[in-house]
Every structure is written in structure tokens, then in C-alpha cells.
Design a binder for these strands. Structure first.
Lengths: 109, 109
DNA sequence: ACCTCATATAAGTATGTACTTATATGATTC
DNA sequence: GAATCATATAAGTACATACTTATATGAGGT
């Protein structure tokens, strides 16, 4: 599964946000996601599996618990793809700034 | 359609890459995409529609042609989401650098 | 007016995937 | 070693969406 497909799902994005705050047990993730999205434990577990298999998360066992951490390596790829477009929205902001400046001048006249 | 869903499709990503090189007529896009993905003209047109409706592309008519340009505004949102993870792969690179340094030291002994 | 070219839309189909419930696995406690 | 807790897997279903072919729209040339 391509990195962008993985990120296409809102539940998975949310899980990554949670993991960004630090290592979380599967159960903790399940609790939050269930509260926010109202889906079952297996559904969350399946999303965690996708995150594991696509390289976005790592797991370690601690007794019966599975502790998940973010692995942002595939996000790097995403970031690099987006990077080439960075100039475009900067250009747009510049254009906006120019318009604002024009507006100011007009108002002054 | 959420920005990440739009980017989930490889054809749409490729179209955006093409548009990043400058304004392109629908037909020019169709030609490249057909060569690379082997899909029909309507399929490409439908992707262009998605890009339009999700704010990733703008169109203007020039005679019978439709000229498309990138609008990277929604990509900004994507970029901002990814941003919070930037620290993670930097940390990973640092760790790698540390390992390399360690390796060097070991070899010297 | 008609024909052609460029593009979009309509309608139908197939496939992937995000869920569900039920069940398995495997560590812990009594 | 039976019961329990935490998590994963199995199997089935439903829905979204990425295609297809056929057709509509609409500008330009003859």
C-alpha cells in the first residue's frame, strides 16, 4: 500500500497523531479511536496492521500489551513529493500580499 | 474528497506533476497519462474533474481547449499535517549518524 | 448548416477496502 | 490448568471509486 493511500484514511491519520505523542499501547489507541469514530476493536487493530505493514509504525510486546511507536520514514517520501509544490502556494501567498498592498494604496488615494 | 484521498491515486499525482511544469491542455495530459497508464480519455477527464472539485487544479477555456493549472492550496494543508512528523525522521537520521560515528570509532580501535 | 476536433458527462461494472461479528492466540492471575 | 485480559485474525458484507463504452456539448473551419 502506497504511503498516500495509508494516509488517505482519517482513522489512520488520527492514530499516527496519537502515536506522535509517544508510545501507546494498542488498547489506549482503541479507546480514543472508539470514542472519536465509534468503530470496533478489530477495526482499529486492522488499521494498526496497515500502519505496521506500510512502515508507519513499529510494535514491541510488553507482556500481553503491544506498544506502538511512529515510524515517520515513509512520511519522508510524502514530504519530498509535496516539496516540489511548495513554491506554488508561496507564490499564491505572495500574490495575495501584493493584492493587499494594492488595496492599501487604493485606499490611500 | 479529502486532500489525502485525492493524492491517494497515482494517476492524479502524476497529473499534478505534469501541471507543475506549467499550464497544460486536457489533451496533452490525456496523451501522457494514456501512454503511462493505458487508461481512456474519459478516465483522465474524470480525474481532472476530481482535481478541479477538490481545489487542486484550475481551468480556463481557450477555444475548444481546456487549460489546466495547478492550485497547490490544498497541498498546504497536507504539508502542515506532515510537518508535525518532520522531527521524527530527523531524529532517525541523527540516530543513523550516531551509529555511523560509533562504527567508525569501533573500526579505529 | 455540417463536420470535425477537444472535452465532458452518463450509465453501468468490477474491485478494493473499511467495516462487522465471531473466534483464535497468548500472557497473567487465581 | 481454568478464567481473564489484551490483542490479533478469519470470514463475510457493503460501499466507494476507478474504470469501461457510449454519447452529449460546444467551438471552429469549409
Amino acid at each position: 500500500m502506497h504511503a498516500f493511500d495509508v494516509l488517505g484514511d482519517p482513522v489512520r491519520r488520527r492514530i499516527l497523531e496519537l502515536l506522535a505523542d509517544g508510545e501507546q499501547a494498542s488498547g489506549e489507541v482503541v479507546e480514543v479511536i472508539q470514542a472519536e469514530f465509534g468503530i470496533s476493536q478489530p477495526a482499529v487493530s486492522q488499521h494498526l496492521k496497515v500502519l505496521r505493514e506500510s512502515g508507519f509504525a513499529n510494535v514491541r510486546a510488553e507482556g500481553p500489551r503491544r506498544l506502538y511507536t511512529v515510524d515517520a520514514t515513509p512520511l519522508k517520501e510524502v514530504d519530498e513529493w509535496v516539496e516540489r509544490f511548495r513554491g506554488f502556494w508561496e507564490a499564491k501567498l505572495d500574490a495575495l500580499a501584493t493584492e493587499v498592498a494594492r488595496g492599501k494604496r487604493k485606499r490611500k488615494r
